[in-house]
Computed example of a mutant assay.
Amino acid sequence: MLKNNKNIPLNSMADDFSQGIAVDKISIKQSDYTTEEQYEQAIQSHRDEGYTFHILEKDSLVIEIDFQKYKIKAPAVVYMHPNQVHRILDFTNMVVCSLLL
Rank of each mutant, 00 (worst) to 15 (best):
I28M: 09
K6F: 04
D66A: 12
L56W: 02
L10T: 10
Y79S: 14
E57F: 12
R47I: 03
K6M: 13
N5L: 14
D48R: 11
I55C: 00
K58N: 07
H81Y: 10
K71N: 05
Q84H: 07
N4L: 12
F53H: 01
K73M: 07
I26S: 09
F53V: 15
C97L: 13
I72A: 07
E36S: 13
Y33R: 08
R87S: 02
I88K: 00
L100P: 04
S12W: 07
Q44M: 11
L100W: 04
K3R: 14
Y70G: 01
K71M: 08
N83F: 00
V77Y: 11
K29S: 14
L61E: 06
A42T: 05
E37W: 06
H86W: 10
A74Y: 05
I8S: 05
I8L: 01
A76Q: 10
A14S: 08
L89V: 03
Q30T: 09
I43A: 01
T52L: 13
I28W: 07
S27D: 04
K3H: 07
D16P: 00
T34F: 04
D32T: 01
S18H: 09
E57T: 07
Q30V: 13
H46T: 13
E40V: 04
A22S: 14
F67V: 04
A14V: 06
K6W: 00
Q44K: 15
V85K: 04
H46Y: 09
I88C: 05
D66H: 01
G20Y: 07
I21Q: 05
H86A: 09
V78I: 15
M80F: 06
D24L: 07
T34K: 13
